[in-house]
């Protein structure tokens, strides 16, 4: 069965060890995203396919509680402004 799992990107961080963190909301908490491939989509158009390699555990998180921080080891073709625009989604392949 094809799973149609989508989530919205809200912010992007490029850590100094080369890993990109995408803050996302609107995800299905029951869907295990780790190790899965996702399309990077804007208005139904796919720019890139990415793999979520892990998730950051955030200790004593106080803000943006509905969001999760996913780790991506691929180069993410998305500018910080685009990430913050709220127009970009990750859709499970």
């Amino acid at each position: 069965m094809r799973v149609n799992m989508e989530m919205n990107i809200t912010e992007k961080f490029e850590l100094s060890d080369g890993i990109t963190i995408l803050a996302c909301e609107g995800y299905d908490p029951d869907f295990d995203v780790i190790g899965k491939n996702f399309h990077l989509i804007f208005c139904g158009e796919v720019r890139q396919t990415l793999k979520i390699s892990g998730e950051r555990i955030l200790l004593n998180q106080k803000a943006n509680l509905g969001q999760r921080a996913f780790e991506i080891r691929d180069i993410v073709l998305l500018s910080p402004e685009e990430a913050r625009s709220g127009n970009w989604q990750l859709s499970a392949v």
Partner: peptide
């Protein structure tokens, strides 16, 4: 750093991953 920006964004004390 981007690391601090991320912690500030989530207002988190620390983070673990990798």
């Amino acid at each position: 750093s981007e690391e601090l920006r991320m912690l500030d964004y989530f207002e988190a004390e620390a983070s673990v991953g990798g």
